[in-house]
Design a binder for these strands. Structure first.
Lengths: 236, 236
DNA sequence: TAGTGGTCTAGACCACGGT
DNA sequence: CCGTGGTCTAGACCACTAG
């Protein structure tokens, strides 16, 4: 039984409590001093745990008051289809074209697949995102099965892939790299997105890095941006 | 004379040294212990300083080796043409199609022009970015003349619009909002980007906010992504 | 083995928010 | 005033990297 650093104990306790709703958005966490005595650690350790939760966007601190659970930001500087973020759960729905299953690595998802990943089995799934029942975005994902045992049998939490990773496997996205092109829709993409062949579509390739060395996620998106442009906001 | 926390002393010393090129990309900073004795602080303090530099993207650490100066992310979550960031100053050049001058507001730059901006005079300029002498991106910018007196007569610092704003007017970009579409190139765009008419091109609309309430910048980019995709990196 | 960063202890004093 | 988080000290031991 391997036991990691103590601050992870504190961090994971808090994180799981938040994810399970024991602390809700706006609630204050126990004070640093209380966490110290509850876990028999010093403030350095407690603060390291809280620092990580801040970095991951779970909480915010306020001097003189405490640490409060925050609305989780999920933008990650990522591109999102306009309408998806604004109309969350409204007229948006997601259809699995291919459920998570053991599949094949695609040779090049623009970003070359790492050798260590290629040596592992590949989980593949494919989803179609619709707004008002109109197909808007095709999403394809490839990831190594390595540390995700049982993933193919699992239901997604709230239909969200990232939420599932976070809550079921304690995996957080730590970064991303994207490449974007405007391309002609080929026959298959045109059919899926209900556009004419050779229409211009947005092709986005994404490489996600996570807090697990071994887990890199490869994604590919095709978007019909005629009615729903892809957007991105950033605040300093 | 107000003096802040000690870790800022260490942090700012390192940050300025990096910015002034005293530590170059790839260089190792002095070790934590050395910084401790040089500034007469403990490791907690030194590490706090280094933590902030990591968060700001200046350095990265490696256990057993040291802290190394990193390629600075300047992305702002913004999209940049791949090749522009990698081949900085190499085979990249910028041509003014329209020098900064008083011009007309375009009715809709996808983002509606604020009324207060519309009431002010408009500075417009248009640049073509090339890689290996091939046109890759057309950039159009609109901004109110309000606080930028003399801007039309000014030379850009290092050919950079943002550097000019920062160094000559102390204006920093504080946020951005983007919308991205894949479109057919119309006649004019096709000619400028040297692509066939109706080729798919990337159309990016950007709204920049700055540390001056009165200054919002409206931009529009058209990219030929066949050879040079547009990219975006993000680190937490 | 020497040097680096990673984790941790057991304190201390200060700045801020609310009573 | 008290309780909160913010900063800081002076140590310690561990894990990783490289010669």
């Amino acid at each position: 039984m391997k036991i990691g650093p103590k601050y992870l104990l504190v961090k994971n306790f808090l994180k799981e409590s938040i994810q399970q709703g024991k602390f809700k958005v706006g609630d204050f966490l126990p004070s640093e001093h209380e966490l110290c005595s509850r876990f028999s650690v010093t403030r350095t350790t407690t603060r390291k745990a809280l620092d990580e939760l801040i970095k991951e966007g779970y909480i915010e601190k306020q001097q003189g008051k405490g640490s409060r659970v925050k609305e989780r930001r999920k933008s990650l500087g990522l591109l999102t289809v306009k309408g998806f973020s604004e109309a969350v759960g409204k007229n948006v729905n997601t259809i699995f074209l291919t459920k998570p299953q053991i599949g094949e690595w695609k040779e090049e998802i623009i970003f070359p697949v790492k050798k260590e990943d290629k040596d592992a089995q590949c989980i593949f799934f494919e989803r179609l995102r619709c707004v008002n029942s109109l197909p808007v975005m095709l999403e394809r994902n490839w990831l190594p099965v390595t540390i995700l045992q049982g993933f193919t049998d699992r239901q997604f939490v709230d239909e969200s892939f990232f939420k599932t990773l976070s809550q079921e496997y304690l995996i957080e996205i730590t970064g991303s790299k994207q490449e974007i092109r405007a391309e002609y829709a080929d026959d298959k993409i045109a059919e899926i997105l209900s556009v004419e062949r050779n229409s211009p579509v947005l092709h986005i390739s994404v490489l996600f890095s996570t807090n697990h060395r071994k887990l890199t996620i490869y994604s590919e998106l095709f978007c019909n941006t005629r009615d729903f442009p892809v957007g991105n906001q950033y605040f300093m």
